[in-house]
Design a protein around this nucleic acid. Structure first.
Length: 283
DNA sequence: TTGTGTTTTATTGCCTCC
DNA sequence: GGAGGCAATAAAACACAA
């Protein structure tokens, strides 16, 4: 897009067709000897240009000239006030700084582009730091999840072990009860304190959400009509199991307490506290 | 001094608005 | 249709290490 010479420009335009594009020289730039030492225009004053061999001059390639620090400072100040440039302000700035209005417009345009790039970089950094933070949080949560899963598995194993211990204990209790009943029939009645003691110390396990097995008939293993479960309990094994049971209770994170839920009944219930209902895999 | 990367100035082409 | 903005790009100016 060829930019036509602006009527309000204070510049010299190359008239030679061989130039291809116009050559712009502001008064200030042309007179400014403090410009870049490599600048073609910085080495020539306006009068010099006029008086030099025009043919040679117009055959010089067009050179860009950087704005002076004062010009840039003024433009920056103006940009801070308002990053858009109204025509009046553009002309005024151009006059004040000795620049072509189009140069001012281009400077603002490029300045807006730089501003946008900086803003994008800032946004990118903010997003990146946010992403890093979220990634760290995610990793921490994954780790925590793994730890909790491992804990669940460990607790399940302990619980299963405890259930086995309680069931075998329950069976032995029932077996002794039945033996006692037979004794009552055949001999002089005896106290049942033994059974009560056994029950009070080793009741059924009550787990929220799980089917409660009491030493009644709820457990299929304890169905009085089913004689297949009957076996001879080994008392030495029982005492050993009791010890193991105590050990488990100590190590278990879940606090298991024996609490008689029904006063006077021989039903004893283990309550597990400290874990949410939702924690239990069967709930 | 020179090669190379970065910054700045300027151009081009396209788009939107009036 | 012209003015002005923007993105992409060219190219000069500049900085700096080797």
């Amino acid at each position: 897009m060829a930019v036509p010479p602006s009527p309000d420009a204070f510049f010299l335009y190359g008239s030679s067709p061989s130039l291809g594009t116009r050559t712009i020289l502001s008064f200030e730039d042309g007179c400014n000897m403090n410009g870049s030492k490599r600048s073609f225009f910085g080495m020539l004053g306006t009068d010099e240009i006029v008086n030099e061999d025009l043919e040679d001059y117009f055959h010089q390639p067009e050179k860009k000239r950087r704005l002076t620090t004062d010009q840039v400072r003024s433009l920056e100040r103006s940009f801070e006030e308002e990053n858009k440039l109204e025509p009046e302000r553009k002309v005024q700035l151009a006059k004040d700084l000795g620049l072509q209005p189009r140069q001012v417009a281009i400077w603002f345009q490029n300045r807006r582009a730089r501003c946008k790039t900086k803003l994008l970089e800032k946004d990118f950094e903010a997003l990146q730091s946010s992403y890093n933070s979220l990634t760290a949080q995610h990793e921490a949560l994954l780790k925590e999840t793994d730890e909790l899963k491992a804990e669940v598995i460990s607790l399940k194993e302990k619980l299963e072990m405890k259930e086995r211990v309680v069931e075998s204990s329950d069976l032995s209790t029932r077996f002794s009860q039945e033996s006692a009943s037979e004794d009552e029939v055949l001999e002089v009645p005896k106290s049942t304190s033994k059974q009560e003691d056994a029950c009070s110390s080793r009741g059924d396990v009550f787990i929220p959400g799980s089917p409660p097995y009491t030493n009644g008939s709820q457990s299929p293993l304890l169905d009085p009509c089913d004689s297949s479960y009957i076996f001879e309990p080994d008392q030495s094994d029982l005492s050993q199991e009791e010890e193991e049971d105590d050990e488990l209770s100590k190590n278990c994170l879940v606090t298991a307490s024996v609490s008689p839920k029904q006063e006077g009944s021989n039903q004893c219930i283990y309550e597990f506290s400290g874990l949410d209902q939702a924690f239990w895999p069967w709930s």
